[in-house]
Design a protein around this nucleic acid. Sequence first.
DNA 1: TTTGATGCAAATGTTTTGCATTGCA
DNA 2: TGCAATGCAAAACATTTGCATCAAA
Lengths: 143, 143
Amino acid sequence: MSSPEHLKTIGLKATLPRLRILELFEKSPVRHLAAEDVYKKLVEEGTDSGLATVYRVLTQFEQAGLLVRHHFESGKAVYELNQGSHHDHLVCLQCGHVEEFYDAEIEKRQEKVAEERGFRINDHSLHIYVDCTKPACPRKGNP
Amino acid sequence: MSSPEHLKTIGLKATLPRLRILELFEKSPVRHLAAEDVYKKLVEEGTDSGLATVYRVLTQFEQAGLLVRHHFESGKAVYELNQGSHHDHLVCLQCGHVEEFYDAEIEKRQEKVAEERGFRINDHSLHIYVDCTKPACPRKGNP
DNA sequence: TTTGATGCAAATGTTTTGCATTGCA
DNA sequence: TGCAATGCAAAACATTTGCATCAAA
């Protein structure tokens, strides 16, 4: 929920930009949004926020664990709502469509690789980049 | 080999900056270098090249398949010599040290994940981020 | 009221590009 | 010589920061 209380529990004032941004992630059919995307949507809906605020809020939300940040090949950071369950990403190189997946075996093997080398995993990112120039692409023709 | 012939076979003139950059990757004990790193090394060794040229050459080498580009969490792109064998990366969040690994099972499962969803893999990146605040870190105390 | 949050503009860091000059082939 | 490659400076992006103003508590 994007209630003011929720923000307060993580030590942040329930300001308009913060509420709107959280709401936006909760309602958007596209789970993965870049700062620019968020900014544009705020402008569209008339919430007059600055891009700097969007960046600051996204960073705070990530630190608070509300959002998760990813870096795909595009170069820009994208955020998605943190819904607890870890997953990796499959990204369309043509249209940017993102699908999530989880494979227990892959997770297990990563643990093993790190352990064998004497490291403890802090985090990981696995991105499978695919082509969507085929009928099955879920967002064919959509830039 | 970093011979002029090698460059010509990929359709590039054997210019000084190109030869030096290729040589640099072949001789460097640190396999993963960012554009800035390459530029600094060139300046150090007296080869007076511009940063723009370094970026152009790195891009060309990547397109020619001589180098492979990666984006770790640092935000900047790093390149490494393409020695044919695919591998993934384990990156120290503290010191930036990079280790390479290959796990056939992980590769296999990725294929499976993509196939199940009707995609053909174009590429993938798997980065395991670890902490090196422990005696076993191979580059402990090295920023 | 008081402190934290915002908006704007300027700064930063990385990468790209325009254009005149240089240098392989 | 001729066209590709270079160097420099400026532009283009994504992101961060300084600071005066504003608003939630």
